[in-house]
C-alpha cells in the first residue's frame, strides 16, 4: 500500500522531482546558483513567459494554440508606453498628449491586447479555421500594427510610477514576479473551482460530447482566447514597465517559450489534460535550465539543443504515461 502511494505520488509529481534534481545538480556544480540574487533573477526573467503560459495553457487545454501572444506583448508595450511617456520629454510619440494618469496607459494596452484575443476567439469559434492558422494570422497583424504605430522606433522615457510596476519590489520579491503569481493563481482557480474550467476540460477532452452535454462550446472558446491575450497584454504592460520603454520588437518567440513551458508541464496537446501545478513546474524547469546552463558553463551553441531535447523528452514521457493508463 505504502509503496503504491509513493509510486502514485512520484508519478503525478514526477515533474517536480525533475526540477529538484536539476536544482541540486546545478547547486553542486556551482553553489552560487542558489544565491538569493540569482533565484530572483530566474523568476524575473521568467515572469513574462510565466504570465503568457497562464494564458496559453487554456488554449492548449481546449485542443488549440495561441501563436499571437508574442506580438500582442509588443503591441501592448508600445500602446501603453505611448500614453505614459514623461510629460516634458521632447520627442514623445504624441507630442500634444495631456498629462494623463498611468492608469490610462495600462488600460489602453490591456484593452488593445484583449481585443486581439476576442478576435482570435471569434475566428476559432465561428469560422472553424484551425487555431494555429487563426492566431498565426493575428500574430503577423499585431506585430505589423505595433510597427506602424511607432514606425518601429522605441517608445522610451516612461513615467517613474509606470516603471515601478515592472521594476519595484514588494515583500522581498520583484513586483513583476508577484504579477505572475497572481495571474497563475487566477488561472488555477478558474481551472479547478469554476464551471468555466470544467467546461474547458470537457471541450478539450471531447468537443462533441461537451456540446451534447449542453455546453455552449463557441462562447467558451471565445472566453479562452480572450483570456489568453489578456494575459499577454498584462505581460506587455509589465515588459514595457520593466524595460522603461515600449518597442515593437519585444516578445519575439515568447509564445513558443510559453507553449514549451505549458507542454513540459504535462499539458496534453490532444486536449483535456492540464494541471496548474504542472504548468508552474514547467515554467520553473525551463527557467532554471536556461540559468543553470550559463552557471555550469555549457557552450551557448549547445544550449538551445538541450532545451529542445528536454521538451521532446518530456512529451514522450507524458505520452507513455498516459498510454499506459488507457
Amino acid at each position: 500500500m505504502e509503496v503504491q502511494k509513493i509510486k502514485r505520488f512520484t508519478s503525478t509529481h514526477s515533474i517536480w522531482l525533475v526540477l529538484v534534481v536539476m536544482v541540486i545538480f546545478t547547486a553542486v556544480m556551482n553553489p552560487r546558483f542558489l544565491s538569493m540574487d540569482n533565484l530572483h533573477n530566474i523568476l524575473m526573467t521568467e515572469a513574462v513567459i510565466g504570465i503568457l503560459a497562464a494564458g496559453v495553457m487554456w488554449c492548449i487545454l481546449a485542443k488549440g494554440i495561441d501563436l499571437s501572444l508574442g506580438s500582442v506583448v509588443a503591441l501592448v508595450s508600445v500602446v501603453s508606453a505611448s500614453f505614459v511617456q514623461v510629460f516634458d520629454y521632447g520627442s514623445k510619440l504624441f507630442p500634444n498628449l495631456p498629462d494623463l494618469p498611468i492608469g490610462v496607459g495600462v488600460a489602453a494596452g490591456i484593452a488593445v491586447g484583449t481585443l486581439i484575443g476576442l478576435i482570435n476567439g471569434l475566428l476559432v469559434a465561428y469560422t472553424k479555421i484551425p487555431p494555429f492558422i487563426a492566431t498565426l494570422g493575428t500574430q503577423l497583424i499585431a506585430r505589423s500594427l505595433a510597427q506602424l504605430y511607432t514606425n518601429a522606433y522605441p517608445v522610451p522615457t516612461l513615467k517613474p510610477e509606470f516603471k515601478a510596476l515592472g521594476q519595484g519590489w514588494f515583500l522581498g520579491m520583484p513586483n513583476i514576479v508577484w504579477f505572475m503569481v497572481i495571474i497563475l493563481a487566477i488561472s488555477g482557480f478558474m481551472l479547478t473551482q469554476t464551471r468555466f474550467g470544467k467546461n474547458i476540460y470537457a471541450i478539450g477532452g471531447n468537443e462533441q460530447a461537451a456540446r451534447v452535454a449542453g455546453i455552449h462550446v463557441e462562447k467558451n472558446l471565445i472566453k479562452v482566447y480572450t483570456w489568453s491575450c489578456f494575459c499577454a497584454a498584462v505581460g506587455g504592460v509589465l515588459l514595457a514597465a520593466r524595460a522603461g520603454s515600449g518597442n515593437s520588437s519585444y516578445g519575439l518567440n515568447y509564445e513558443l517559450d510559453a507553449i514549451a513551458a505549458v507542454t513540459v508541464g504535462g499539458t496534453s496537446h490532444s486536449g483535456g489534460i492540464c494541471r496548474i501545478s504542472g504548468v508552474i513546474a514547467g515554467i520553473l524547469i525551463l527557467g532554471v535550465l536556461k540559468n543553470a546552463m550559463i552557471f555550469i558553463g555549457i557552450n551557448p551553441y549547445v544550449q538551445q539543443a538541450i532545451k529542445g531535447a528536454i521538451i521532446i523528452g518530456a512529451v514522450v514521457f507524458d505520452m507513455r504515461k498516459n498510454a499506459k493508463k488507457a
Binding site: Q193, T194, R195, K198, N199, Y201, A202, G205, N206, Q208, A209, A210, R211, V212, A213, G214, I215, S268, G271, G272, I273
Partner: peptide, 24 residues
C-alpha cells in the same frame, strides 16, 4: 464520440451538464 469525455474522471463526466447547480 458524443458522450463520454474519456480523459476526465467519472465524477466530472456525471456532473458535466449540471454544473450550474454547484455554484461559484
Amino acid at each position: 464520440g458524443q458522450g463520454t469525455v474519456g480523459v476526465r474522471s467519472v465524477a466530472d463526466n456525471i456532473v458535466l451538464s449540471a454544473l450550474e447547480r454547484y455554484g461559484f
